[in-house]
């Protein structure tokens, strides 16, 4: 129902602006790099110490000393820079990164996010997620609207341990694009082929639907 993960990535890519420094998390966010609109330049930040991340290397270019935060081999570009982890997170915490896109397990109507820990299961760690959500002003959460069990991931309050409190303002899901403000999810756009009723049924948190909700425009 609604968009697939590529569709979510394509729609978020339309939020990119010329000159943006962008940090893309692992999963759906990584796909956004494939859909950067023509005519604009964005600089990808990888928190392990690379600004100006290039595409995956050819076989000949593979360098074990050049990876992204997902531990994949990458390349540099003209204008790239390399630095240590403390400087990388200085960029992040001080708000230099214009847009951060990351996945989540739960988001609350007050802008809380949970994406790092499920108690009782293996705990892998938060990596850089807590620093990213604390430091960035402009964050888009990219995720499916419901989990595998069909339960809403947009909740009145998070049930899982938090990654950050009151820090998320935008959520892009397979069903729609929502803004979080005044203690509610405000539906901005609806994905093609999705009804407002479907979004209501899939949103456990408070949902506000204005009369002029647009249908999402997705390029093929």
């Amino acid at each position: 129902m609604g968009l697939d993960k590529y569709g979510i990535a394509k729609r978020i890519a339309k939020e990119l602006q010329d000159g943006y420094y962008v940090n893309l998390g692992i999963g759906i966010p990584t796909l956004i790099a494939n859909y950067i609109p023509e005519g604009i330049q964005v600089v990808l930040q990888s928190e392990n110490g690379l600004l100006g991340m290039g595409p995956f290397p050819t076989e000949e270019e593979v360098d074990a000393d050049l990876i992204n935060a997902g531990k994949q081999t990458v390349t540099t570009l003209a204008g790239s820079s390399l630095f240590d982890s403390a400087m990388s997170f200085a960029m992040i915490r001080s708000g230099r990164v214009d847009l951060t896109v990351l996945g989540a397990m739960e988001v609350s109507q007050d802008g809380d996010i949970a994406n790092w820990k499920i108690p009782g299961k293996m705990v892998k760690g938060m990596g850089g997620a807590m620093d990213l959500v604390a430091g960035a002003d402009n964050i888009i959460v990219a995720m499916m609207h419901t989990n595998r069990a069909g339960h809403s991931k947009l909740l009145p309050s998070c049930t899982l341990p938090l990654t950050g409190k009151a820090c998320i303002k935008k959520v892009m899901t397979n069903l729609g694009y929502l803004e979080i403000k005044e203690g509610a999810f405000h539906l901005l756009e609806i994905a093609p082929g999705v009804t407002i009723d479907e979004i209501r049924q899939s949103t456990a948190g408070k949902l506000v639907v204005s009369e002029n909700v647009k249908e999402m425009e997705i390029d093929d």
Partner: peptide, 21 residues
């Protein structure tokens, strides 16, 4: 970790790097 042989202290990556710095 699950058997209790190992302790782990998970620290946000930016906090970890700054604590080291």
């Amino acid at each position: 970790l699950l058997s209790g042989e190992l302790e782990v202290d998970l620290v946000p990556q930016g906090t970890l790097s700054e604590r080291i710095r």
